[in-house]
């Protein structure tokens, strides 16, 4: 474990806490893409299949359970909670995310980390996480005004993978000394997708203006 990876995991956890807080305190999920949340549930379920077969550390097990539990809880709130589900902007959340699932699955079959079921699914989860934010970014572009918590959620979610890029550089030089093409290219793509959001987020923060993405 290195400081970049720990910071990355804590940032990731914080992003989820911020989203849960927003939904629970405001009883609203306006501006949040249910499709992105569904993709993240899929990412965690297909990535953590080794939860009960391979033990790394208490931290690893605990965090996997927290990520699965919180992402399912957010999905449940947005899909089934009687008050929250009324605030879901269904018409704005129009990204065809099933294409992302199919595309990433085909990619994982063609370029898997290893030709075993768990490794194909692990690769699928890496590819899927790289594009999982797309429905959310599209929804933000359609939203007139983006509330602070939603902006912070997306920023933290993007920042965590950027910290993971630093973690991978660190691990390359200190222990692995080999290129891990699949997670590293996926992680670069994932972080690059946030580039323009980061730009507008930092601008709005510096100018103390409301966050607005160009359509």
């Amino acid at each position: 474990m290195n400081v970049f990876r720990l910071a990355g995991d804590m940032t990731h956890l914080l992003s989820i806490v911020v989203l849960l807080l927003k939904i629970r305190t405001t009883k609203s999920c306006a501006g949040i893409s249910l499709k992105t949340q569904e993709l993240y549930v899929l990412v965690f379920l297909t990535r953590y299949l080794d939860l009960f077969t391979r033990y790394f550390s208490v931290y690893n097990v605990l965090m996997k359970l927290i990520f699965i539990g919180t992402s399912v809880a957010i999905f449940w709130y947005m899909r089934y909670h009687k008050v929250v589900k009324q605030t879901y902007s269904k018409d704005l959340d129009s990204f065809r995310h099933y294409h992302l699932i199919l595309g990433c699955f085909l990619m994982a079959l063609l370029i898997p980390f290893d030709f075993s079921v768990t490794e194909v699914l692990w690769t699928f989860s890496i590819y899927l996480e790289a594009v999982a934010i797309l429905p959310q970014l599209v929804l933000l572009q359609k939203s007139r005004n983006i509330d602070n918590l939603t902006g912070n959620y997306v920023f933290l979610l993007g920042a965590y993978r950027a910290l993971y890029l630093l973690n991978w550089i660190y691990r390359f030089f200190t222990e692995i000394h080999k290129i891990r093409w699949i997670p590293w290219i996926s992680g670069l793509v994932q972080t690059a997708l946030y580039a323009d959001f980061f730009y507008y987020y930092i601008q709005s923060w510096r100018k103390h203006e409301e966050l607005k993405l160009p359509a």
Binding site: D9, H12, R54, N60, F113, N167, W168, R171, P183
Partner: peptide, 10 residues
Amino acid sequence: LPEGELHDEL
């Protein structure tokens, strides 16, 4: 899987 295959990451 050999060590350092990043499966120890979240």
